[in-house]
Simulated assay, not measured.
Amino acid sequence: MHKSYQPTRPAANRLLQKKWDDKYYSEHRLLVRDARPTVDTRPPRTYMHLHMKLKKLQLEEERSATIERDNRILLEKMSNIMRTTGSIDNRNDYEAKSLNHEKRRRELLRVSRENSTMIKRIMDRKPDINRDSWTNSWSKNLSYLDNISKYDSDWHESKPSSRQIHSRQQSSKRSVDGTHDNQKSIKSLVMPNETDITKVDNNDA
């Protein structure tokens, strides 16, 4: 085999050169195998606590154990009631007691007395301001103001003009004339005049 081996470089002994090349190649393959890549293409690590939540399983087991214990106690109570007549103790002879009841009662009475005294003082107090005198003074001031003012007190209010007053008078006059005409026509229809009566008599004759 070594005789047919062709080294890449000139060598005096092909057998030794072949051994050396095989050794270098095997070392190279080992280095290539153990070399770490620059880019990590491996899948991420899988953590067990992310897939299996042990705390949740523990809580569920504890809850199921509590439910089973309560169910067992309830079943024992129901079986005891079914075996016996069963009784309910709903009597409560305890009387409500308070250590500061008397103190709170005295405090309430004191506050009530103070409130009643304050209300009485407020009701008996006469006002410092006389409202009637203020009203009389204001009316007197208004009369003085009317006396010294050039215009009326309601000058700012809108008043109808002379044209509007004239048109209103004309419309009222027309309405009065119309009512008189209507009354005359009604009277003529209800009570005919003498000429109409004479015409009817002549026709009958």
Rank of each mutant, 00 (worst) to 15 (best):
N193I: 00
K150M: 09
S98V: 04
K103C: 01
N141E: 10
L145K: 03
D132K: 07
K56Y: 07
R63W: 06
A11D: 03
M118P: 00
R110P: 02
K159H: 01
M48W: 09
I148C: 09
K55Y: 11
I148H: 05
P43H: 03
H2E: 14
H180W: 09
I81V: 15
S26N: 11
L189P: 00
S171V: 01
N92K: 10
D40T: 05
K187H: 04
E27G: 07
K199N: 13
S79Q: 15
N71E: 08
R121P: 00
K126L: 13
R91I: 11
P7S: 04
D21W: 02
Q58D: 09
M1Y: 05
T38F: 10
Y47E: 14
E102L: 15
N193V: 01
K19Y: 07
H2K: 11
G86C: 03
N80C: 08
L57Y: 05
D152M: 05
N90F: 14
K187V: 07
L16E: 12
D34N: 15
D177R: 05
K150Q: 05
M48D: 04
L15G: 05
P43C: 04
S172H: 03
P10E: 03
W20M: 09
Y94W: 07
H156Y: 11
D124S: 13
K55G: 09
T135N: 13
I119P: 00
L108P: 01
A65Y: 03
K120A: 12
